[in-house]
Design a protein around this nucleic acid. Structure first.
Lengths: 108, 108
DNA sequence: CAAATATATGAACATTTATTCATATTTAAA
DNA sequence: TTTAAATATGAATAAATGTTCATATATTTG
């Protein structure tokens, strides 16, 4: 089955959709209270290990680990092992902007 | 059952968690390719009716309607009826910032 | 090496979100 | 005043996310 380009009403629009899909993928990965708190904490503290995060967030070990593992898999966090501990940090400092944006945005 | 304030390790943290939960609520409501496209379009065009949005987004009528209704219910969009048409617009212009933020953020 | 600590993993289940389909509602126009 | 157009709604289902629990892995320490 063939698709002719002229049948596509607006090529730019299609590319925009693709970008928005990609953005949605990242947004989904942070659209959760616990995850946003992790990002917020890491925007202040550069690096924290899982136990530290767990204490601050009052989040059960396994659940937090799942969140962290997933955020890491989706390119939001970095992880570095030091002995028994794993230190997480923001992969992309820009992510803080989203938190700031949410903070200043009067919708929140 | 009583809760004593001194048992709460960090009151600010708790408030932060609450804020992040609220932020997550809004973020969830926009963390979808189609929804982000709606916001993006409305950041350029002020107002669009459902048919116009449907054409641009190549999205089935009922599905789009569900998205719009939900975004409206969650305080993201406004809706105004004019004859047979319903015109949607951004309730909060600030929402554009999130789109911009996503655009410039190199994570996307 | 055995025990303890920190963290990860996988499976099962619960909850949310997305999608489809059929039908209802509203308004305009023939 | 029936018909068509634009949009909404609800129920059913599918797919994605969140949560829990039991257990695994890695590392350190006695």
């Amino acid at each position: 089955m063939f698709i002719y380009l002229h049948e596509i009403s607006n090529m730019n629009q299609i590319i925009e959709i693709e970008r928005m899909e990609k953005a949605a993928y990242t947004l989904k990965a942070i659209s959760n209270g616990t995850r946003l708190c992790v990002i917020s904490l890491l925007s202040q503290k550069e690096e924290m290990n899982v136990s530290q995060l767990g204490e601050e967030l009052n989040c059960e070990q396994s659940l937090l680990s799942h969140h962290l593992t997933d955020m890491r898999a989706k390119g939001i966090l970095n992880c570095r092992r030091d002995g028994k501990n794993c230190y997480y940090s923001l992969k992309n400092k820009q992510m803080i902007q989203i938190i700031d944006c949410i903070r200043t945005c009067n919708c929140v």
